[in-house]
């Protein structure tokens, strides 16, 4: 450190300027004008550009994943495996209408008729124990689900006056059969299932009509 200290005694002071500002600008402008080559710099400039070009050519070909905004893998091998992957087909066996129906009921019906089918006093009629549900072979409930119902209706002695939209456009025949079966077999209801064929038949019979009224249904 002493040596350096002595050095600094000599060196400290002011760093002398060895070139005036305007001459720096002028001399370098001249270099550019005269296109004077600078040997090591020229070599490394060329080397750098070549290396970068080769690298980016390689990288562009290999890792750009086809510019796919949904692709999170970069390696071509992985991408090929990922794209050829097919989920194993699970044979679920015959669908249990009660299970499928419960799911459909939860998303389509429970908001009004409530999860336990108890309805809401004065507003939405109950399904549990309702004669509209349990009577007959189930074609009554299937008709209501397909086309909807509006106007005054009496359920289990209480009268309601509301409106239920038809779900025929949103649900398939199988879905309607499942949800009808579920409603007819839950919360103390115990009536036979509704089949997909039954629903299909009703759908073609009543094709093109609007919502039912209770009186129309009773008349049939």
């Amino acid at each position: 450190m002493d040596e350096h200290f002595e050095d600094s005694q000599k060196q400290a002071g002011v760093d002398e300027g060895q070139a005036s500002d305007s001459s720096i600008v002028r001399a370098h402008a001249q270099i550019r004008r005269e296109k004077v080559a600078g040997s090591p710099v020229a070599f490394f400039t060329a080397l750098g550009l070549i290396v970068v070009l080769v690298f980016s050519w390689f990288y562009f070909r290999r890792y750009m994943a086809d510019y796919d905004p949904n692709m999170y893998l970069h390696d071509r091998g992985d991408i090929a495996l990922y794209k050829s992957y097919e989920p194993p087909v699970v044979d679920a066996g015959p669908v249990d209408p009660m299970v499928a129906g419960a799911k459909l009921y939860a998303t389509n019906c429970a908001a009004c008729h409530q999860p336990e089918g108890q309805g809401m006093a004065g507003m939405f009629p109950p399904l549990a124990g309702s004669e509209w549900v349990t009577e007959g072979d189930g074609s009554l409930i299937a008709k209501i689900v397909i086309s909807g119902i509006s106007g005054p209706i009496t359920v289990m002695g209480e009268s309601y006056n509301g409106m239920m939209p038809g779900l025929g456009a949103a649900l398939s025949d199988a879905d309607i059969a499942h949800v009808a079966t579920y409603i007819r077999g839950s919360w103390g209801n115990d009536t036979p299932e509704v089949t997909e064929e039954q629903v299909a038949a009703i759908r073609s019979e009543t094709a093109g009509r609007g919502v039912w009224t209770a009186a129309e249904l009773r008349a049939q």
Partner: peptide, 8 residues
């Protein structure tokens, strides 16, 4: 779209 070990 999420890759997982099974898919690759």
């Amino acid at each position: 779209e999420a890759p997982d070990p099974v898919k690759i």
